[in-house]
Each structure stands twice: as structure tokens, then as C-alpha cells.
């Protein structure tokens, strides 16, 4: 099994953290993992992305010219990465900020209003990335939800622990939204 994922959005939306938690979850599932950030001179408001690979065997190239799944948090990223997704691949997109439908019909597309769910139901719009991650984890077999939760707990320790409840709630709401479909 090998799953190549690209997580993309605006800088500041937490797309790199989505990737890091996926990689940590894969690691605790006993898989090989790699995480490659977009390495441009990025800034808040600019675009950012990362590539994560979770594999049951050695990872050769850490890059993903044709990803299996894409987690898309804004419109410019949809335009950039939808064409790269492999046929039959999974697209999870943030419909709160993307007012268009995916162009392709040969992919599995799933919309989640991540900003709305994060703001209204989880209590903080900044947790929109965790809504997206929860939805992805529920839709994909590449990581277990338990491992994702464990990884999130591991990331939000010490000073960051106060952010754990809202992020955990956002994660669960994202998963619930995905399961409804």
C-alpha cells in the first residue's frame, strides 16, 4: 500500500500541519512516511502545500507528480492540483472558500464546508484544517482515525494543549460530515 497525498491552501490555513499529522499518524501505524513542504519563499496569504507519502514499503521518490488524494483548502490550489490527481483519486475540498465544482468526473470528489463547520460548530475558524483532515481520514483507508487523534494529541502538548479540545472537535466534525455522504 502506498498513498500519496497533497495538502494545499493559503499560507496560514494550516495545510502543512495537516500533512505533518498525517505523517505522524502513518508513522504510529508502523508505516514508512515522508513529508515534503513547498519550499518557496512563502508568506501568510500566499499559497502553501506539502506532499505526504504513507507506504507499507520503502519510499523511493518523496515527490508526488500524480497524487492519490488531494486536500484542498482554497480555490487557487484546486486549479493547481485537480489536474494532477490520479484517475479515481480522492479530492476533499473546502466548499466554504471554493465556489466552483471540480472540473473532472473521473475522480471521487467530496466537499466539506470546513470554515463554516469550524467557526459555527467547533468554535474557531482556525480549526478548518482539522475539519478537512477529519473528513479525509474518514474517507481514506490510508490512516486510522485513532492514529490521527493520537498524532494530534502529540502535536498539541505543553503551551499548545489549550488548543487541543477545539481541534479534536473539528476533527470529529469533519469525519462526521464525511460519513454522512
Amino acid at each position: 500500500m502506498e498513498e500519496k497525498i497533497i495538502s494545499a491552501g493559503f499560507g496560514g490555513q494550516g495545510v502543512l500541519l495537516i500533512g505533518k499529522i498525517l505523517a505522524l499518524a502513518g508513522l504510529s501505524d508502523g508505516k514508512q512516511v515522508s513529508w515534503v513542504p513547498s519550499y518557496g519563499p512563502e508568506m501568510r496569504g500566499g499559497t502553501a502545500n506539502c506532499t505526504v507519502i504513507i507506504s507499507s514499503s520503502e519510499i523511493s521518490s518523496p515527490l508526488a507528480p500524480m497524487p492519490d488524494s488531494i486536500i484542498i483548502m482554497n480555490k487557487p490550489s484546486l486549479e493547481a492540483f485537480e489536474p494532477l490527481l490520479r484517475k479515481g483519486g480522492l479530492l476533499v475540498m473546502n466548499s466554504s472558500l471554493i465556489d466552483v465544482k471540480p472540473k473532472r468526473s473521473d475522480i471521487k470528489a467530496f466537499s466539506v464546508p470546513a470554515n463554516d463547520i469550524a467557526e459555527k460548530d467547533a468554535g474557531n475558524v482556525k480549526a478548518a484544517n482539522m475539519v478537512m483532515l477529519g473528513a479525509y481520514a474518514a474517507l481514506s483507508d490510508s490512516v486510522s482515525m485513532d492514529s490521527v487523534k493520537k498524532a494530534l494529541e502529540g502535536e498539541m502538548k505543553g503551551e499548545k494543549q489549550k488548543f487541543l479540545p477545539v481541534n479534536m472537535k473539528a476533527l470529529e466534525l469533519g469525519a462526521a460530515a464525511a460519513k454522512k455522504k
Binding site: S34, W35, V36, P37
Partner: peptide, 10 residues
Amino acid sequence: DGLLGQMMES
């Protein structure tokens, strides 16, 4: 190189 330096792996 920049990729090796900035990528994360186990």
C-alpha cells in the same frame, strides 16, 4: 540539498 534538508521522514 534544500529538499533533503527540509523534508521530514522517520
